[in-house]
Simulated scan of single mutants.
Amino acid sequence: MKFDILYAVAEKFKVNINNVLIAGSAQTGESFHKGTLFNCKTSDLDLAIVDPGLYENCLRIAHTATRDYSDLSGFQRKEGVSVQKDFLENLGRGFFRPDLMPACTYKSEWFNFFQQLSKIYQSNFESINCGVYSSLHFFQMKQAGNVEIVKNQKGR
């Protein structure tokens, strides 16, 4: 099953299967944000694609969708505030979050793919989600930061 999921993602986004990594609570056994243990029936499966070419392609799409960031109307709003700032902050950390990207066909296709994949494996995971990292360095830095959050929460 693990191979099938990673293979499907690698094929869809035309990346090497070794660049599709398991992240989050499925990797660590514990959710960084919820403080709950991973449960293969009720937890999400978080994936990361570490690929500079895909990362650049996603940036190019966002750049085009916003007309060189001159039109920010495509960014969704949470509690009345645009997510554009969060989107750009994550880019500065080498992390492309598709959920924060501006509205465009690519974003719709991205989420349609992961919704379909989630349906196939719904007996194993609540949902399957994925982000894109520009390099292994940025992926490792994000994971290290999350581990520190958990340690601080538990007073370790």
Rank of each mutant, 00 (worst) to 15 (best):
K154A: 14
G145R: 13
E109G: 06
K151N: 12
G80T: 08
Q140P: 03
V20F: 01
I61G: 11
F32D: 02
R93F: 03
F95C: 15
F139L: 12
E89M: 10
T105I: 05
F38E: 02
S31W: 04
E11F: 05
V81N: 04
T36A: 09
V50Q: 04
A144W: 10
V147D: 09
N90Q: 10
A48E: 06
T105S: 11
G80P: 04
K142M: 09
S25A: 07
F139N: 09
L136H: 07
Y121V: 03
N146G: 15
H33Q: 07
F138V: 03
R93K: 14
Q115N: 13
A23T: 12
A23P: 02
V132W: 09
I120T: 12
I22S: 04
G24Q: 07
E30D: 03
F125I: 00
K2A: 01
K14P: 02
T28N: 05
E126S: 06
G53Y: 15
G131Q: 08
A10Q: 10
N112P: 03
P52F: 14
R60D: 12
L100P: 08
I17G: 02
K85A: 10
F114I: 01
K151A: 15
D71N: 13
K34N: 06
Y133M: 00
L117A: 00
L117K: 05
K41A: 15
S123W: 06
E56W: 10
V9L: 05
D51F: 04
N19I: 04
T42L: 02
E56T: 13
K142A: 13
D99V: 00
K2P: 00
F13V: 03
K154Y: 08
S118C: 07
I120Y: 03
Q153L: 15
F138D: 15
G24W: 05
L45P: 08
F139R: 11
S135Q: 01
K85W: 06
W110Q: 01
K14D: 09
R60K: 14
F113R: 00
A10N: 07
G94T: 10
N146H: 13
R156W: 13
N57W: 12
S118E: 05
R97P: 08
T66D: 00
F96A: 12
E148G: 03
E30N: 08
N146Q: 13
I22Y: 06
F96W: 13
D86C: 04
G92N: 11
M1L: 05
K85S: 07
K14Q: 11
K34V: 02
